[in-house]
Simulated assay, not measured.
Amino acid sequence: MSIVTEVPAAASADALAHFESSLRFETDCWDVHSVMNTPDQDFVLLDVRGTEKYNAGHIPGAIDLAHRKIIAGKLAAYPAETVFITYCAGPHCNGAARAAIRLAKLGRPVKIMTGGITGWLDEGFELVSGAEAAAA
């Protein structure tokens, strides 16, 4: 028995419930990228790091809305069922979770994009700067 198996794996039914449940709260960079700018895109991607970092480089199509600025008035243009996907700098940043909390408190459906900018770049996807985004 190794340190890995010292604590037994969960029963299959428990593992299934756990992993299915986790996908209700998060998505990943690859899945977001695969549907961006297609008819299948059914979410709004929020960069919650702040305008300075957003302008330095962000995911194409993301909206700049720092987690501290998420209030009902900023979301009024979106139908109540709009799913928001939040991201921040990466796995070392809790901004996406803070944004998700604010959105959930406002009664909005939300998921976190795990990996954030770090994960996006690790997948080989491009960022755009504020100037490039304005020109697009």
Rank of each mutant, 00 (worst) to 15 (best):
M1E: 14
M1G: 14
I3N: 14
E6R: 15
A11F: 07
S12H: 11
S12A: 13
D14G: 03
A15K: 09
L16M: 09
A17Y: 01
H18S: 14
S21I: 00
L23K: 15
L23Q: 15
R24G: 07
F25I: 07
T27H: 04
D28R: 06
S34G: 04
S34A: 12
V35T: 15
M36C: 06
N37Q: 09
T38E: 03
P39G: 09
Q41K: 12
D42W: 00
V44M: 05
L45G: 10
L46V: 11
L46R: 07
R49N: 07
R49F: 02
G50I: 03
T51P: 05
T51A: 11
T51S: 13
Y54Q: 05
N55P: 00
N55S: 12
N55M: 13
A56Y: 01
G57E: 10
H58G: 02
H58M: 05
H58L: 00
I59E: 04
P60Q: 15
P60W: 09
D64Y: 01
L65K: 06
H67N: 14
H67W: 12
R68P: 00
K69C: 08
G73S: 15
K74N: 09
A76S: 14
A77I: 07
P79F: 04
V83A: 10
V83T: 12
I85S: 02
T86E: 05
Y87R: 08
C88G: 15
A89L: 13
G90N: 09
G90K: 12
H92V: 08
A97V: 11
A99S: 08
A99M: 04
A99Y: 05
A99W: 06
R102N: 14
R102M: 06
K111W: 01
M113K: 08
M113Y: 02
T114I: 13
T114G: 07
G116R: 11
G116V: 10
I117P: 01
T118D: 15
T118L: 08
G119L: 03
W120K: 06
L121I: 15
D122F: 02
E123V: 01
E123I: 03
F125A: 07
G130M: 04
A131E: 13
A131K: 13
E132R: 05
E132K: 09
A133P: 01
A135C: 07
